[in-house]
Write a protein that binds this DNA or RNA. Sequence first.
DNA 1: GTTGAGCGTT
Length: 246
Amino acid sequence: MSHFGRSGPPDITDTYSLLVLNITFRTTADDLFPLFDKYGKVVDIFIPKDRRTGDSRGFAFVRYKYADEAQKAVDRLDGRVVDGREITVQFAKYGPNAERIQKGRIIESFPRSRSRSPRRRHRDDHYKDRDYRRRSRSRSYDRYERDRYRGKDRDSRRRSRSRSASPVHSKGRGRGRYDDDRRSRSRSMSASPAQRSPSPQKSPSPRKTSPPRGESPSRRSRDGRSPSPRSVSPQRRPADSRSPSS
DNA sequence: GTTGAGCGTT
């Protein structure tokens, strides 16, 4: 059992934070503790987890008491295979409070001292937004399934090196692509201009035109706040305005 | 159930 993260940050001022990436989603602090502790004195280990599911995010933070030990751990554990996955160990770049860190050591403990941005604080959903953003990125495990059916455990080894395969598909061209795109559009414009709106009767509904008005059929007056229709437009009278006085 | 670039909690 690990008591890391149970009592929050112990003391990061005198500890060096190491960032461990590429770890499996099942790897826990207990699994990393013996590994990192062997190379130095680990003060604390923290693994960010999801607020809703509670699963590991795939990376962990290991705090060392000395920089030399941390450096050694990075050099020795960086690239090590843990739980069948190659982990990436490196010094943390940012602190828990978005502080600047150098070599894992926090150098700036108050970068916001300059002048707090009067910008809106958004609300307390800033952390939620972040989580949602991360969660949205990964959701395609089709490759895993395909590999599973294709090369049960034969090509599986090859997938280990798929860390930096080719994240960029073909966006580097840019110019050529743009030129092509532009030409394509130009031709489309003068070649087949009639295809702009070939389907005006998209909705063959005999009904009257459905204006995208914000009309919500569901009555929001559920709690009894203002069930009276008068609150809809107490001072404005569309009916009256609509009908000409003359 | 899965996933895979990244930077953290009481």
